[in-house]
Nucleic acid binder design. Structure first.
Lengths: 211, 211
DNA sequence: GTAACCTAAATTGGCGCCAATTTTGGATAC
DNA sequence: GTATCCAAAATTGGCGCCAATTTAGGTTAC
């Protein structure tokens, strides 16, 4: 039970699963919305077998990151304004609902930890790839959510955050927006330190609405 | 081989996907928590092919309804007290967050529609199978959520509701509990009719906590 | 009598092949 | 010159086979 389990060990250049590789390329903007994902191409690109590609595509279709058209293939989901708005609304509901618990649970060590992750994000803005920046952002928010004390909620938000994959990439093109995000991270930590629930709620809300 | 004529292409007697069939059997309590799902057995039980079984198991593993142990197989998730509690908390956050919008959007026709679904649930308590009851309950809550005006949220709640599969089945064993659920449905519709937001919130909260 | 080891059966999981369907390119008719 | 139809190439998706791993049972040694 304590063994490290990896689904498919061969055919992959990296050690990771093919699903994650395709996912990363979608998030990084390499595979643009609308692109048809031909199985042959993916097979060659990720140096893996046909069944692995098919399983990855099926999983991504389940996650609603790609759309499956029978006998036609899979293509990356087009950004949908309505859906993006609805997902934002859900995130605001969930993430503002637990700020009270976050502030209650946050120890000085936790706050220092968060501050470090916020600074790491700032660092990646200057000297990091788009993917590293994305992951630094994810790490900060993940640590924030963990303080909410609901592991299931952490996983859920991490999951639905991926559903608006194309939105963040397109919005993050401007450096000004990213730098603003970095500042907001620090303001959030400040609010936790000051135990100001209402201020943190408003910050989280604004942060989500602006990507 | 000449006993049953089946549609070509799909090895399923029903028109539905194998994934749904396994899912329903888990929800109905036919496949109990902890059961090892041998591919051969499922192949025969649902009269389908090996790849279909494997795809279904992979999808259910993604949804965290079954657990995958490499080179050992798949087994139905054991009910986890902590997880069930966390999922309930998430449902309460989401479903109480939109009661305001529900009451705003509910037209007299919508209310009549909900009332009908609540009565259909009552009918199924007396003259219906466990599955029909489960689906009648799902239909009521789905219609309720649709009034929230966020399609993505409807899908999300429908999805996470399945994550505590074993809990409802075991709790629904007592008829008293089910009849109480039926009464609560009507009380919810009453609260919508009276446009009493706070009361509806409390009803939803209690309804979720009691399964 | 018990424990450890070894062999055989069963199960999982990767892989490639082939049929069904769609798309594309070109030829023909108007 | 353009539209329609047909054929060939490409792509998807279903299916079964075989290797790798695990499990169970029986035998042997202590």
């Amino acid at each position: 039970m304590a063994d490290v389990m990896m689904d498919s060990g061969q055919g992959v250049s990296n050690g990771r699963d093919v699903t994650d590789l395709v996912l990363q390329d979608i998030l990084a903007g390499v595979l643009l919305p609308g692109t048809w994902l031909k199985q042959i191409d993916l097979e060659r690109r990720y140096n893996c077998t046909r069944p692995e590609v098919r399983r990855a595509l099926d999983r991504l279709a389940q996650k609603r990151l790609v759309e499956h058209v029978p006998n036609r293939g899979y293509h990356v989901y087009e950004p949908d304004g309505r859906r993006a708005r609805e997902v934002s609304e859900i995130r605001i509901i969930l993430e503002t609902a637990i700020v009270g618990t976050i502030i209650q649970n946050a120890s000085p060590a936790d706050i220092a930890n968060l501050r470090g992750l916020a600074e790491q994000f700032d660092f990646m803005v200057l000297n990091g790839t788009m993917l590293e920046l994305y992951e630094a952002n994810l790490a900060f928010h993940r640590q924030l959510l963990i303080l909410g004390g609901n592991q299931e909620l952490v996983d859920l938000i991490t999951e639905i955050r991926q559903r608006t994959s194309s939105a963040p990439v397109s919005q993050w093109r401007t450096r000004a927006r990213v730098e603003q995000s970095g500042r907001e991270h620090h303001l959030m930590v400040d609010a936790i330190e000051a135990a100001d629930t209402e201020r943190l709620k408003e910050l989280v809300r604004q942060h989500i609405l602006q990507g």
